Simulated assay, not measured.
Amino acid sequence: MLKSTELLGGSDPDPVMLGREGGRSPFLLACDHAGNAIPARLGTLGLGEADREDHIAIDIGIFSTSHWLAHRLDAPLIGQAYSRLVIDCNRRPGTMTSMPKVSDGRIVPGNADISEEERRQRVAEIFSPYHTALAQLIAVRTSFLGMPPILCAMHSFTRVYGGRTRDCDIGVIHGEETEIASRLIHRLKTFGDLRVGYNVPYEIDFAGDHTIPAHAVEGRIPYIEIEICQDLIATCAGQRKLAFMFEAAFGDVEAALARSG
């Protein structure tokens, strides 16, 4: 059990990673599961290196892909540096998956017996700074653009989960189908044999998820959530390829919105 009132020390990274805050694009890219850092005071959470580098700890490939895309679009990018096993910044604090004891069948020993003080620390020092920074970035972008940005929650998913194979490559996710979602799906389907679907492999959990419900739905700003299969973006070449595809798809959306508005 931690004795201090602070979780993060001088050797730990800042939870918030920011880039291109002054970009011209109407899109704002957010990566809730960008990193897999663990505060030094928590050691390894009792996990081996293979687990700490695996999908249970990080959305593999998504931050690099989003970084390429942000560069191509000239769009702001925000990422969260700490592992989703320390605290999942896309889950409401207090839910079972916020600080999971088990992930994809693997026990997380460091989360087995977390005190209320430890939970408070993780929320106060990692979760809250990230979401405060995202809220501030949305406000700054709204002022800069003269309208709210389009919040793009960027995620990746593993091909096999819970012993079951997923047969989609890219998911375009929204609470209800919109022009943004429809245009993205249509454009992405023009690229070869990619299997693109609506609300796959997930739907937004409006009761348990945090980023889209808290920032977009409650804030009444346009949004989209993107899920990319990790085997497509496990390499630098794959990350660049998908970023270029999304650049074209997002460009179609921006052009359509400009014509209609």
Rank of each mutant, 00 (worst) to 15 (best):
E118T: 07
S25I: 05
L7Y: 10
T190E: 14
Y130N: 09
V160F: 09
I170T: 10
M154L: 12
T44D: 15
I173A: 11
F63M: 09
S83G: 09
P26V: 06
E6F: 11
P39E: 04
R141V: 02
A243T: 08
V86S: 07
T65Q: 15
A124Q: 13
E179V: 03
A112K: 12
M1V: 04
A133M: 12
A40Y: 14
A40E: 15
A139P: 15
L194Y: 13
Y161A: 01
E247C: 04
G171S: 07
P222F: 08
I87Q: 08
I226T: 11
D54P: 00
R259W: 07
A34W: 13
V108K: 02
D252P: 05
I60L: 14
V108A: 03
Q239T: 04
F191Y: 02
Q121W: 15
L2Y: 13
I126Y: 12
M154P: 09
L77T: 12
L2Q: 11
V172C: 04
I62P: 08
R166F: 14
I233A: 05
S143Q: 15
A50C: 04
S182E: 12
S25T: 07
P76Q: 10
D88P: 03
A30T: 15
L45K: 08
D193A: 02
R187W: 02
A135K: 13
C89A: 06
G162H: 12
P93T: 02
H186S: 04
F127D: 05
V123N: 07
S128F: 06
S260K: 10
L188A: 08
L45T: 08
Y82Q: 03
V16C: 07
R24I: 00
L188G: 07
P109Y: 13
D167E: 08
D104F: 06
F250D: 05
S260Q: 09
T44W: 13
T211P: 09
E225S: 13
D104G: 00
I173E: 12
V253N: 05
H186I: 00
D252W: 07
Q80N: 15
D14G: 06
T158E: 02
A139M: 14
I173C: 10
D104L: 01
A216Q: 12
R84T: 03
G43V: 07
H186W: 00
I78F: 14
H67R: 15
M147H: 14
A234M: 10
A37W: 10
A237M: 00
D209G: 06
H155E: 09
P109W: 13
E118K: 08
R72K: 13
S128R: 15
V86N: 11
E179Q: 07
L18Y: 11
R84H: 06
G9T: 08
G146P: 14
G46M: 02
R106S: 00
M1Y: 08
V217K: 04
G261Q: 04
I221W: 15
E177H: 00
R41C: 15
G192Q: 04
F191V: 00
P76K: 11
N36P: 01
C229D: 09
